[in-house]
């Protein structure tokens, strides 16, 4: 039983809800970043919602995903709670990573979310590893490695897919081709029309689908999952999509013009899916407006929670380096503090 059944009205409604949640979350994350409330930097997923939600719709809840630097959408698609995600973006103790990860490293391993990742192309080897654990212990799961079009040029991505293919591991590689690797268009990065053609090198299926269409993504991933579970190895799914915002918030986007952005906005994944549900008679515009308002209110609550919940104690910086903590952590923590400590010795 997949996470969401897009053949049922309830499943479709939930898929719509998750896409709208991603957009509302990231819009608010962008606003709060602009206001200086969120430290570091954030990479927004707006425009790409159908890829994350379409992929996770076809997974089981205990399947794994390894994400990218643009990971908020994957988290929400996988069912993580925006409240603790926002707390993580704010660097708060109650965030998913107790404030140690932030936007680029949100993870919830228990929920099968193996982390957003600050290194382009680093997720696929981790997904191959999760698939290795699954295969080794004969578990009924799969692992998805998300990567962008830019990451397809990374050597470790090739190594990860080659390993997964050679060992017939239950992995799926979802290439989110948003047409830009940071500020460089895909044509300047690859000598291929379809990035999924790289799959031929590993003798695995590679398909290119419309990443603005949630059902197209979900169907491709469902097929890939079935294949993986049958022991036939990995599949590469390239989803053609687009990010409406810059590479990061604050990106001045000298590499593209408004006209191009508008062309993609005309195929908006949320609007088009919503229109289809209205055509089918299972949703009205009014219901959709209510749904969006309700979601936006819940994101406002998440922001409020993130603003108000406690920051971590500074001493937490020394925790969680290891499962079994070496004495060095305490030794040098004492050096950092003004009251001296072990490192000061008896001779100061």
């Amino acid at each position: 039983m997949a996470e969401l059944d897009l053949d049922s009205a309830d499943g479709r409604r939930e898929a719509l809800r998750r896409m709208v949640t991603i957009r509302a979350f990231d819009q608010e994350a962008g606003n709060r970043f602009a206001d200086g409330e969120i430290p570091g930097f954030v990479h927004l997923y707006i425009g790409e919602e159908a890829v994350g939600v379409g992929t996770c719709a076809s997974l089981e809840s205990d399947d794994y995903i390894a994400s990218t630097h643009r990971g908020h959408g994957h988290c929400i698609a996988k069912g993580l709670d925006p409240k603790y995600m926002m707390a993580e973006l704010y660097g708060k103790a109650e965030g998913y990573c107790n404030g140690k990860g932030g936007s680029m490293h949100i993870a919830d391993v228990d929920a099968g979310m193996l982390g957003a990742n600050g290194i382009v192309g680093a997720g696929p080897p981790l997904a191959t590893g999760a698939a290795l654990s699954i295969d080794y212990q004969d578990r009924d799961q799969v692992a998805v490695g998300f990567l962008g079009d830019g990451a397809v040029a990374q050597g470790q991505v090739h190594e990860a897919i080659n390993l997964a293919s050679t060992w017939d591991l239950p992995a799926i590689f979802v290439v989110e081709n948003n047409h830009y690797g940071e500020g460089t268009p895909v044509e300047k990065q690859h000598n291929l029309d379809n990035l999924s053609d790289t799959a031929q090198a590993y003798d695995i299926p590679g398909v290119t689908v419309d990443g603005m269409d949630i059902t197209a993504v979900a169907e491709a991933v469902a097929e890939a999952r079935e294949r993986a579970r049958a022991g036939d190895g990995p599949t590469m799914v390239e989803a053609q999509t687009y990010r409406y915002r810059g590479h990061y918030e604050g990106d001045e986007e000298p590499y593209r013009d408004d006209e191009e952005v508008e062309r993609w906005r005309d195929q908006d994944p949320i609007e088009s899916f919503k229109d289809r549900l209205i055509e089918r008679g299972e949703l009205t515009q009014e219901e959709f407006d209510d749904l969006r308002a309700e979601i936006e209110a819940s994101i406002d609550d998440a922001v409020e929670y993130a603003q108000e919940t406690d920051a971590p104690e500074p001493s937490a910086a020394y925790e969680d380096m290891f499962v079994e903590q070496p004495p060095e952590l305490e030794r040098f923590a004492n050096v950092a503090r003004t009251d001296g400590g072990a490192n000061g010795g008896d001779h100061r």
């Binding site: 193996l114 590893g129 190594e159």
Partner: peptide, 23 residues
């Protein structure tokens, strides 16, 4: 046995360790 693919299998070992096995 692995292919000659140190980045690949080092990453796979990391992902595998995070998901319940001990490579």
């Amino acid at each position: 046995d692995t292919p000659i693919s140190e980045a690949g299998f080092m990453g796979a070992a990391t992902g595998a360790a995070a998901t319940g096995t001990r490579p």
